[in-house]
Amino acid sequence: MTYTADKPPHTETREELQRRIPGWGADLDPRDRPSVPRERHDTGATGAHWDFPERQEEKRPRERSVEHRTLTPVFGTVAPTHGLSGVIRRYAYRKYSEARAAHWLLLVAADRVDAVESHLRSFATTRPDNPITETGVLSEFTRHGISSRFGRKRADLNHIWIDPIVVAGPWLLAGGVLYSAVRAVTKRRS
């Protein structure tokens, strides 16, 4: 088989499969499946009662892909651009199409800037960011953190040690920089 014309046989017959698997073959006909054909023209099927939707009001300038002719009639309004991350994001949308790696890499960079900006801003509020509660890491103690990982053949053990560095690294780095700065200032004064 394989090196000859016949397909390697299965061990189970159709009848055996029908007995063993509830519903086996219920969608056997490839033409009678919900996503077949992939494209089917049926505008009446969706519930839309418009040719083109009314336009949602643009209450503040909304960034958009340069691959769109205009702003789409409906859009999300959560978390408008702001700060330095906003400057980067608006630039990425204005300057580069989705086809350009720069577009996406700038957006990823803006995400990191946004996180730093938001952490700093949170320290001026009554609810500063708390990496212990916000990472949910205490569930390691209540949800079998050790036995879920060790003594099992998990392939992710070779990289999960990086996660604490990704999460805590920037905090430790910022703390170190702050400590060095304070130390330098106090040394200079004394």
């Binding site: 946004d114 938001s118 960011d129 990496p131 916000e134 990472t135 949910g136």
Partner: peptide, 10 residues
């Protein structure tokens, strides 16, 4: 969402 690996309820 508060940044990578961080979420909270507010």
């Amino acid at each position: 969402y508060r940044g990578p690996y961080k979420v909270r309820v507010e």
